[in-house]
Computed example of a mutant assay.
Amino acid sequence: MRDLEQHPITPDFDVWPVIVKPAAVRSEDGALLVEWSDCSISRYHPFLLAENDPSPDVLHPLARETTLSPLDLPGDLLISSAELGPDGTVIVHWTHNHPTSRYHPGWLYGNGWFDTPHTIETTVLWTGKNQPEPPTFDGPTALNDPAVFLSWLTALRDFGVARLENLPNQDGLLMQVVERIGPIRESNFGRMYTLEIKDDPDSNAFTSDALMLHIDMPTRECPHGLQFLFCRDNTTSGGEGIYADAYRIAADLAAEEPEHFKALCEIEWTYNNRSKSTSYKAKGPVIERDFGGRVTGIRYNTWLRAPLVASLQEQGRAYRSYRAFAARAQDPTYQMKFAYRPGDLVAFDNRRTLHGRNGYDAHGGTRFIEGIYSDRDDLLSAIRSLERSFTTETTS
C-alpha cells in the first residue's frame, strides 16, 4: 500500500515504510542497482521488476495481482537507465520501447538482493530449564485488545507454545478464538474434539494413561500445524501437560551427535493411525529441513510408527538415531511441565513442539479439555495482517 500518497502502489497490501532512502540508482548490465542511504547496495533482475510493475497494464489495481504472462515480455528485455524521482520513487526506463515503470522505494528495499538475505530470525529455542512455563497472557484482555492478541500470536510463532489464562467456561469460545486466526482444520477426530475417556478409544489420548511426548497427525502428508487445548474444567489429580521444543533437541543433536542428526534427517519412517474406521498413512524423516538446511518440522510419534522396511544396517542406524532423539525428548531438562487450569487455552506448533501428559485419576474429579487444529499458514497470515493494520494506523 502507499507509504506516502505520491509513491506508487505495490504488488501486495503490505505497508512498506521508507526507513532507508535510495541515494542513487543506475542500470548495471541491464539490471537495476540501487545504492541506499545506509551504504548498502541491492540489485534487481529486469524480469522481477517488469512483472511487478505497479502500472494498471500489469498489476490489477484492486486485486494487486499481475495480469502479465512471462511470455508477454521480450526475452532480452533490459533496463536502459534509471533515475530517482523527487520523493524517492525509483523510475526505470527499458529497452524495446517498453513503458517506463515507477517503484515504491520501501518495497524495493524490502525485496532487494543484498548479496546476503535480509532475514530476521524470530525462533526462540528453549528447554524446560530456561522456559518452565509457556509465555502467558490474560485471555479476556487478549480477546479485547488486538495488540495483546498479536503478542500472544507472536509468542506462539516464536516459542512454538503460548497460553491464554482466565478465560470463561463458555461453549463455542475455543472455536471463536481459533477462527479469529484462520480456518479450522478438521481431522479424523472431527472439527473439534474433547479429551475424554472412551470405552473403545481410537487414540491413547482418549484414556487416562500417561502420554509420551509426540506430535499429532504424523500419519498425514502434511501434519496439522497448530493445536489448541482449552481447559474448561479440571479437578482431577495428575494429568499435567508436558512439552518440549523439538527444534532445540534437533539443534543439540546437530552440535553434539551429528551422525544421529544426519540419520534423523535422511531416514523416512512410515506412520499409520490405529483405528477400526480410518486408515491414514504417511512417511517422512523425524527432522524435516528446507533446501538451506533449516529445520522446518518434526515428525515424531513413537506409537504410530509402522515397521521400517529396510536393510538391517539401515534399521540399526534408524533405531540408534531414534533412541538418541527419544533420550533427549524424555530428559526432564528439556521438558516444560504445568497443570491444566480451568480457563487456560494452550496453543502450540504441532510440527515443532512435542506434547504429552502425566497419567491422571479418572475417578478423582472432572476433566473437560477441548481441542482444535489449524495450520501455521493461518497464524503467520494473522500476524502479518495485524502488524499491517498497526503500521497503517501509524503512517496514516
Rank of each mutant, 00 (worst) to 15 (best):
F228T: 01
T395N: 11
G85T: 10
E179N: 06
I79K: 04
T333V: 14
Q335Y: 06
L73Q: 05
P223T: 02
N234T: 00
E266H: 08
Y334D: 04
G88H: 11
T67L: 15
Q131G: 02
T141M: 02
R185M: 06
F325A: 07
W107D: 06
G128W: 03
I181F: 00
P17E: 13
E65T: 15
I242T: 05
A142Q: 00
Q170S: 07
I19V: 15
T296Y: 04
H96P: 01
F13I: 14
S101G: 10
R294I: 13
R248P: 01
N97Y: 02
H96Q: 07
T67C: 06
V25F: 11
T116P: 04
P132E: 07
G30E: 02
L167I: 00
L380K: 02
H60D: 15
S37N: 13
G110C: 14
K198Y: 10
A63F: 13
R43E: 07
S237F: 04
F291K: 14
Q335C: 06
I79C: 08
Q335F: 07
I181L: 00
F206H: 09
L73S: 05
R26K: 14
A205R: 03
D29T: 05
G292P: 01
T278C: 02
I298Q: 01
L253R: 09
G239S: 02
F325S: 01
R388M: 08
P201A: 03
T10G: 12
N350S: 06
Y340P: 01
T127L: 07
R305D: 06
R320N: 09
V18F: 11
K198A: 12
S208E: 06
A329Q: 05
Q6E: 15
D87M: 12
D349L: 00
L173S: 03
N111K: 14
Y247T: 05
A282S: 11
N273Y: 04
D29A: 12
R43I: 13
W36I: 10
R274Y: 08
L345K: 04
E5A: 15
P342E: 09
Y280E: 14
P17S: 10
P11Y: 12
M175T: 15
W269N: 04
G293C: 09
L73F: 11
W269V: 04
F114N: 12
V286T: 10
P86Y: 10
G190M: 05
A254T: 07
T66A: 08
G356T: 05
I41V: 15
A327E: 14
R388T: 15
S187A: 01
T122S: 09
D3L: 11
F261L: 08
E240S: 10
W107N: 09
S311M: 08
F149Q: 00
L312Y: 11
P332H: 13
D145C: 04
Q170A: 05
F291Q: 12
V346L: 12
W107V: 09
F137W: 05
D202E: 10
D252R: 07
K281E: 13
D209S: 10
R299N: 09
